[in-house]
Simulated scan of single mutants.
Amino acid sequence: MIQRLALENILFLDIETVPQTEHFNDLETEDQELFALKTQYQRKDDSTPEAFYERAGIWAEFGKIICISVGFFTRPDSDRSFRMHSYTGTEFKILTDFSKMLQDHFSRNDHLLCGHNAKEFDFPYIARRMIIHGMELPAKLNLFGKKPWEIPHLDTMELWKFGDYKHYTSLKLLTRVLGIESPKDDIDGSQVRNVFYEDKDITRIANYCERDVVAVAQVFLRLRGEKLLTDDQIVSK
């Protein structure tokens, strides 16, 4: 039961990704061909690979991470606080700093990672990008040889499924039905690419990413039947 988990042992996180390059034509010819092949079944008949490239950030082979935001509870009682931090910069720096944080502060067996749809997206995406950069995977992302019950990952979308594997619920919808303030009050995922490449506003993206982390933590609290965080309990550094 999730009520038995110690909140301070859970690292809540979210990532933001964009296409590897700003424009499709910036890719080498072979990469353009591989992208066309990769997306041939996702694209509509009249959609060219070039037009579809703005969505390339969802694939680790053609995208990159521009922000990882994390949050954790410092105290489990009524005087608790939720502290957040965002990693930005080059992708290599983001992944290096994030990996070091995991190794230094979230490496015990009872430490868990939690996100929304993170088992399908965030966790494997981070791991793939680390491998692409030639980095060693931290223990919390190295799942080789582990049994399902040994994997240290929580997923609020999976928890909301209650065993219904056909069910998909966005974080925006879930916060709405649970009476939680929406994290999508500024930009949404479809706009991150433009904010990054055109506006060059990584601060805005990091703020958006942190709001998602707070929303995931709030959903987790609701699933445990606990009171939501108040604004004064949320600290970003």
Results as ranks from 00 to 15, higher is better:
Q3G: 13
L5P: 03
V18G: 09
Q20C: 07
D26Q: 15
L27P: 09
E28T: 11
E30C: 02
E30G: 01
E33T: 10
F35E: 02
Q40P: 00
Y41P: 00
Q42K: 14
D45N: 10
T48S: 15
A51K: 12
A51Y: 05
E54P: 00
G57Y: 00
W59V: 05
A60S: 15
E61A: 14
E61M: 07
E61T: 11
I65Y: 01
I66V: 15
C67V: 15
I68Q: 08
F73M: 11
F73C: 05
D77A: 06
F82V: 04
R83D: 10
T88K: 06
I94K: 05
M101W: 14
L102R: 04
Q103S: 14
F106T: 05
S107T: 08
S107R: 06
G115N: 03
H116Y: 09
K119I: 11
K119G: 04
F121W: 05
D122H: 09
D122V: 07
P124N: 13
R128L: 12
R128M: 12
I132L: 08
L143R: 15
K146F: 11
L154D: 04
M157P: 01
L159R: 07
L159M: 13
D164N: 15
K166F: 10
T169Y: 02
L171P: 01
R176D: 09
S182G: 12
Q191R: 13
D201C: 10
R204K: 15
A206K: 09
A206H: 08
Y208M: 13
D212N: 10
A215W: 01
L223N: 08
E226H: 13
L229D: 01
I234D: 05
